[in-house]
Nucleic acid binder design. Sequence first.
DNA 1: ACAAAACTTGAGGCAGCCCTCGATTTCGTA
DNA 2: TACGAAATCGAGGGCTGCCTCAAGTTTTGT
Lengths: 201, 201
Amino acid sequence: MAAGTKPLRSDAARNRDKLLVAATQLFAERGLDVPLEHVARRAGVSIGTLYNHFPTREALLGAVMPQRLAVLEQITATALADPDPWAGFVGFLEGLFALQSEDLGLNEALTQGFSLASDVSQACHQGFVDAQRIIERAKAAGRLRADFGSQDLITLIWAMSQVIRESMGTAPGAWRRCLAFFLDGLRAEAAHPVPGEAAAR
Amino acid sequence: MAAGTKPLRSDAARNRDKLLVAATQLFAERGLDVPLEHVARRAGVSIGTLYNHFPTREALLGAVMPQRLAVLEQITATALADPDPWAGFVGFLEGLFALQSEDLGLNEALTQGFSLASDVSQACHQGFVDAQRIIERAKAAGRLRADFGSQDLITLIWAMSQVIRESMGTAPGAWRRCLAFFLDGLRAEAAHPVPGEAAAR
DNA sequence: ACAAAACTTGAGGCAGCCCTCGATTTCGTA
DNA sequence: TACGAAATCGAGGGCTGCCTCAAGTTTTGT
């Protein structure tokens, strides 16, 4: 597709694909810190080959994560299409966290978020632009409390990511209960004055 | 005090103290995974000596953390002494999280919580027994939502711990805003029906 | 002042993970 | 088929952190 890069030799293309598949699986199962040797082994390829295709871990991440993050776009679109802005907002969060509960790597990527490879960080930022529209719409409808900003969404993601990680093994789905509590505090009618303006960054 | 253990030679006792001080500092600064070599170095002692006194990392944690966790008892007592049960509940949470924001090791210990050395886990469990009374009192007063259980407190700790860790560097204190949102969802009058019964464990 | 007991020391072995590079194999083409 | 370029392989060197133990040092009681 892209003209910039020369076509790979057939075996090289095959190996690259096997590496992407293995990396996608292992990042999802074990998180972003999985040893690259494990990725190579699952791909049935030597560690040297892995480094041939992806000279750094970030390069591999950059090839794998954007695909996974793209699923979020679908969720965002569905949320914006919902006639009820509040239901859209809630649906967005549930979709986002459900995704995180199936993919530890995605969970970690969204937590550490923007400090990662430019590809990943790029995709994250784009996602947040869209998310902002969901937030604004729910606020405009008078359902989401007015003092909830997009930095608060990031904070919420930090919080829920951890809940998801901790409960993954013993009680998957427990995060839904936590989210329900949190949402009750985000309704406009629940709002009490809050200290300090939205956090930094 | 305890009769079980023989008195240490004076230099040994001195070194043990230096190790405890160094460990307390470094756990607080760098978290529970800090290399034990660093602890030994800060104590001005060789790594072998550290292992003499504390044969495992858990032993060192067991000697350091209970002291830190004891601070919580004071906070709990203050909370229970508050004439307003809701204010006591809120004060307890604010005290707990303020403590966590000053001590990364304590933060991690409370997150990983019960899977640690028996000493630490012991102290955690005791703390939760007390916390339960704070919760019950606030519920009885009709201020805390009735479906909030002590497992939900653990979940809340998971959530807030992460928020604290992530915002430590850039925006210390940002967690207060998040907590305020969450508290607005915990008031009795904010409660909407919530899915599933309290999570496992 | 001395010897035995208590304690300290730090080099060194182990393990996991990172990454490189020269030898070898495979592919595409003429 | 045979050749050169492209790609693969995996042993090995580097690093960090864990933990041990034989040799050396300090304290203590007499």
